[in-house]
Simulated assay, not measured.
Amino acid sequence: MIRRYGEPLQQGQRYKRRPGVYAILLDGDHLLATHQAEPVPEYQLPGGGIDPGEHPIAALHREVFEETGWRVALERRLGAFRRFTYMPEYDLWAEKLCTVYLARPVRRLGPPSEPGHEAVWMSVAAALEVLGNPGDRAMLARALTGAR
């Protein structure tokens, strides 16, 4: 069973399953996150949806690069969680199936290419407080304990 985080299900609402991949990018005691300005400003783990026919690892590299401008090296899969949410940018009620990987930032190639995103370095302690959804915070805490 995959743990669920976030807002409760809306009774009678149909949700579309949306698989995605996300990265916890650690360098010492700092995390590389992304700040998304719209639709609601928030700090997030870099990542996003897997396009139809796209391999999840390729999607992870693409999404991290688009949202941070960095190339990364994957270390291991940490786990997955679900969240049910409305995504106004897509006018979509989604069941997000979020698979999270631990990775290292390797090389910054430029600024984020995804509009409205900014790459932000922050302390791990700050990230545990400000990441915008409880699933991201729980996966970061898991990474820090070395849990598999």
Rank of each mutant, 00 (worst) to 15 (best):
M122V: 08
V100Q: 00
E114Q: 08
E75K: 06
K96D: 01
R17P: 08
P46D: 05
V40T: 14
Y101S: 10
Y5I: 00
A143D: 02
P8L: 07
L45F: 00
L74I: 08
V106L: 12
P88E: 01
E54D: 04
H61E: 14
D27R: 12
I57K: 02
Q10N: 12
C98E: 00
R17V: 14
A126C: 14
P46Q: 04
A37N: 12
T34W: 04
V72C: 09
A33S: 15
A37S: 12
L109V: 01
G49E: 06
G132V: 05
I24A: 03
E54R: 05
R76Y: 04
F65D: 10
L60N: 04
E67I: 12
R17D: 02
E67N: 14
R3Q: 14
A119S: 08
A126E: 15
G116D: 10
V106H: 04
A141I: 07
V40Q: 10
L26K: 06
T145G: 13
H35V: 10
Y15W: 03
V21S: 02
P52Y: 08
L144H: 00
A58E: 14
A119V: 07
Q13N: 03
A138Y: 07
I24T: 09
R83P: 04
L92P: 00
L32F: 03
V21A: 00
R62L: 03
D91H: 12
Q13S: 08
L97N: 02
M87V: 14
H35S: 11
E114Y: 09
N133I: 13
G146F: 00
E114S: 15
A58I: 12
H30T: 14
T145H: 07
T99Y: 07
Q13G: 02
V100E: 01
W93S: 08
L128C: 09
G12F: 15
P46S: 07
R18A: 07
T145P: 14
Y90R: 12
Y90D: 07
S113T: 15
G132Y: 10
G48M: 06
G135I: 05
E38I: 03
F84L: 05
P111Q: 10
R4K: 15
V124M: 09
P115A: 04
A23K: 02
V100Y: 02
R18Y: 07
E95R: 04
G135T: 06
M1Y: 12
A73I: 13
V40N: 06
A141C: 05
P134R: 10
L102W: 01
G49N: 01
Q11N: 13
